[in-house]
Amino acid sequence: MCIPNTELQFCTCVEGNIFDIKDIYIWTLRTFVGLKESDRRGKIMIPVENLGNGITIENVIARLNTGNIFDFEYIPKERDTLHISFNAKNKSDYKYFSLIYINKIWEQGSNPVFTSISNQIAEGEIIIKEKKIYDHPNLKK
């Protein structure tokens, strides 16, 4: 079992196909390999900035840029991408955002959808550490 050591922990300990599990926050980490030709055209779903429960673009970027929040050793490489989503039972409630590692920092974005070649590094569930009331910085224990 993955035990969070930060407020958000990106855990790989899910058994089976993570995309079959509903109403959880999931992530997929990929490394960029190259570009390919493509005649594909289409629209992709518009990303959001906030998935709820503290899983926001701003919060995740801040944590990624200050340390490792994965449950394994990971050193990002140029153009690595992190796709984060809420895998809802109801497809209309599905939402996501993507981050890319560029110039030694994580930022919002991704590689070109239809022309990028990438390999999956890992995937899993986001575990949210429960905050106790006495963990609040303005309250004394």
Results as ranks from 00 to 15, higher is better:
F72T: 07
T31W: 13
E7I: 09
N90M: 15
I26H: 11
T81I: 10
G54D: 05
N111Q: 05
I75C: 06
E37D: 03
I24A: 05
I3Q: 05
C13E: 15
Y25V: 08
E125Q: 12
C2Q: 04
K129S: 11
Y74A: 03
T28K: 15
A122E: 15
F72H: 12
S118P: 00
H83S: 09
D135L: 04
S85I: 07
R79I: 02
D39H: 11
N5Q: 08
E49M: 14
S98C: 03
G124E: 05
E107C: 01
T115I: 05
V14T: 08
G16M: 11
S38H: 08
S110L: 02
N87H: 05
Q108C: 06
L139Y: 12
T12A: 11
I75R: 08
N87C: 06
L8V: 03
D23K: 13
P112L: 11
I69T: 08
R40H: 06
K132D: 11
N119Y: 07
Y74P: 07
A88N: 10
N65D: 08
R30P: 00
I102Y: 13
E49C: 06
K43C: 06
E125I: 01
T28H: 06
I3L: 14
F86G: 07
K132T: 05
T28R: 14
Y74G: 01
Y134T: 12
T28S: 07
E123P: 08
N17V: 08
D23S: 13
E125P: 11
F86D: 07
I133E: 13
N103K: 10
T66W: 12
D39K: 10
F32C: 05
N138A: 03
S85Y: 00
I61Y: 09
H83N: 10
I133T: 05
E37R: 09
I24F: 12
I69M: 04
K132L: 09
P76W: 03
N103H: 13
I128K: 07
H136K: 14
I44K: 08
V113F: 02
G109Q: 14
P76D: 03
I105A: 12
K91I: 15
G42W: 05
M1W: 07
I84K: 01
S110G: 13
